[in-house]
Nucleic acid binder design. Structure first.
Length: 531
RNA sequence: GGCGGCAUGGCCAAGUGGUUAAGGCGACGGUCUGCAAAAUCGUUACCCCCGGUUCGACUCCGGGUGCCGCCUCCA
């Protein structure tokens, strides 16, 4: 597999277009992902930024690459310190707490562990060493225990964000309070002298701590070398974070070093605007996974190309008439359509996330198909003669990977699932029109193909029956549905149907429908699910 | 103000210089069903506007309009 790889295209922010991935060492890929600053719970945007490289890593491994995946944790930072001081705890303890939460949340979403997960606090000597060499090279200067990067002396500054020094200077003067001790407003801190109530480390410039950007330069070269393949992160990191990383790393290690490709994911938008902690319009991943299966969230994030914005919508229907409430009405609680007034608590329980509902239904469809396929295989006899499976199924893996090879186009790839799944459902329902061998082989092949898809995507890999059951039960728990009671009614209904007492059967079905439960009657009994 | 991105059916969303412009949701009609549901079959787009390049553009170039982002912490 590793001998002849098909080209993988990716969009590189630096060159501004799609290029073919040519790894530094053939067959190997080094990826550095800017992980979170751990001062709060992970929000959906952070999660997307972790899921995107996760799929890249899975896919490149599937393509036969040996991948070294490094994702850092920024555990020393202004906001961590501020928050810790507010809470009256050690910054380190606060950081650790949110690191645990981060790990927990990501594991839920079936994220692979990175091969290395470096922390700033554990790379102090490398950071100091890097700053020292920048000082020695004349690219940095110390003032009163602070050390700043001398941006002007790094010629290519602005290459990633496609901005010139002049443009940047115009903005800088007007929008930030300029520290008079800096030679230029653009200069940024590599090292910050200790202030009261702050953790600090000894350095040649006195006690202090690293500035925000230096850690990624230091940790990436420590774990991937001065030059490596892919550096990824959210779009908002392009400037200044990644621009500054380039200045630091190339400043110290020379032109042509550092990341060869820059991959940046788009934002999650909420109400059409960027979801962010500073705007306060964010949802933590945990809030969402309490309502929906984590795999649903993962699937949802992958339905759209990673570079695009992903709109996260919220709907609040009126509990009385079902009309969707506008933002003002959500706050007042009064429905303009029917005049019904609801308390905030009631409305909160009614909140729906249409994108996730769709994703959940789709995932259920896929798992139901898979469950059906497995059941078929378990019961059917393997035909003696071999015949090829239906084309849509036999070509699925290739069609799917082709999309991922094209800048990790998960949205396009997911679209390739429809036809084969659809045809398999047809075969499951009836063997009309095809030979037994084709039917069997097609169903057998879809199970196998979906296994490969699962390896690439990190979705669809669970036990179908278990997933379906868990989804049903967790949703039941969420809305306070008594499953035993549902089962009881269902049993009564089955009895009524056997007795051909349609009126009673329909009455029970109506009753269940009031609870949001639907029934499906099949040749061998009835099952229930959510409407 | 500077820089960057986006604009595809009712909604979401892939994609291509010229064949039938994926897929999902929704809607409508059929099959199945005691009736339903689920599943399945069928129907549902000429790609923001104006110029240009081209034999031919939704796809390339220029302009316009609109939305979003970055320029300050941010995934």
């Amino acid at each position: 597999m590793s001998e002849t790889k098909q080209p993988v295209l990716l969009h590189d922010t630096l060159s501004g277009g799609k290029t073919e991935l040519q790894t530094l060492i053939p067959g190997q890929v080094g990826i550095y992902c800017c992980g979170p600053t751990v001062y709060g719970l992970t929000h959906l945007g952070n999660t997307r930024a972790a899921v995107v490289p996760d799929v890249m890593v899975r896919f490149l491994r599937h393509e036969g690459y040996e991948v070294k995946y490094v994702r850092n944790l920024t555990d020393i930072d202004d906001k961590i310190i501020a928050r810790a001081n507010e809470e009256g705890v050690e910054a380190k303890d606060l950081a650790n707490r949110f690191i645990d939460a981060y790990h927990h949340d990501l594991a839920d979403l079936n994220l692979l562990d990175p091969d290395v997960e470096p922390r700033v606090s554990e790379h102090m000597s490398q950071i100091i060493e890097l700053i020292e060499s920048l000082v020695t090279l004349g690219l940095a200067y110390a003032v009163d225990g602070d050390v700043y990067y001398r941006v002007r002396s790094f010629g290519p500054y602005g290459q990633l964000s496609h901005r010139s020094l002049d443009e940047l200077l115009e903005g800088a003067g007007s929008r930030i309070d300029v520290d008079e001790r800096k030679e230029s407003p653009l200069d940024f801190a590599l090292w910050k002298a200790v202030k009261p109530d702050e953790p600090s480390w000894e350095s040649p410039w006195g006690a202090g701590r690293p500035g925000w950007h230096i850690e990624c330069s230091a940790m990436s070269s420590t774990h991937l070398g001065d030059t490596f393949d892919i550096h990824c992160g959210g779009r908002d990191l392009i400037f200044p974070h990644h621009e500054n990383e380039i200045a630091q790393s190339q400043g110290a290690h020379g032109q042509g070093t550092f990341a060869r490709y820059w991959v940046h994911n788009g934002f999650i938008n909420f109400d059409g605007e960027k979801m962010s902690k500073s705007l306060g319009n964010f949802f933590t991943t945990r809030q969402i996974t309490e309502l929906y299966d984590p795999e649903t969230v993962r699937y949802f994030l992958l339905t759209v190309h990673y570079r695009s914005g992903l709109n996260f919508e919220l709907e609040v229907p009126c509990p009385s008439c079902g009309a969707l409430l506008a933002k003002e009405d959500q706050e007042s609680g009064k429905c303009p359509a029917c005049g019904h007034e609801s308390s905030p608590e009631v409305l909160k329980q009614r909140v729906r996330f249409p994108g996730l509902e769709d994703a959940d239904d789709r995932l259920a469809y896929i798992y139901r198909t898979l469950a059906g396929a497995r059941a078929f295989l378990a019961n059917a006899k393997r035909p003696g003669n071999e015949e090829p499976p239906l084309e849509s199924v036999s070509s699925l893996v290739e069609a799917f990977s082709a999309h991922l090879r094209n800048d990790f186009n998960t949205g396009g790839a997911l679209g390739e699932l429809s036809k084969p799944l659809n045809e398999v459902n047809g075969l499951l329902a009836s063997g009309k029109g095809v030979s037994k061998a084709v039917r069997y082989r097609t169903i057998e092949t879809i199970v196998q193909a979906m296994g490969e898809v699962a390896a690439m995507l990190g979705c669809f890999g669970q036990e179908p029956e278990a997933w379906l059951l868990r989804r049903r039960d967790s949703k039941a728990a969420r809305i306070g549905l008594d499953v035993a009671q549902v089962e009881e009614l269902l049993a009564q209904r089955i009895a009524a149907r056997v007795a051909k007492d349609w009126a009673a059967a329909d009455r029970i079905r109506d009753e269940l429908a009031k609870w949001g439960v639907g029934v499906q009657d099949g040749p061998d009994g009835s099952v229930w699910s959510f409407l």
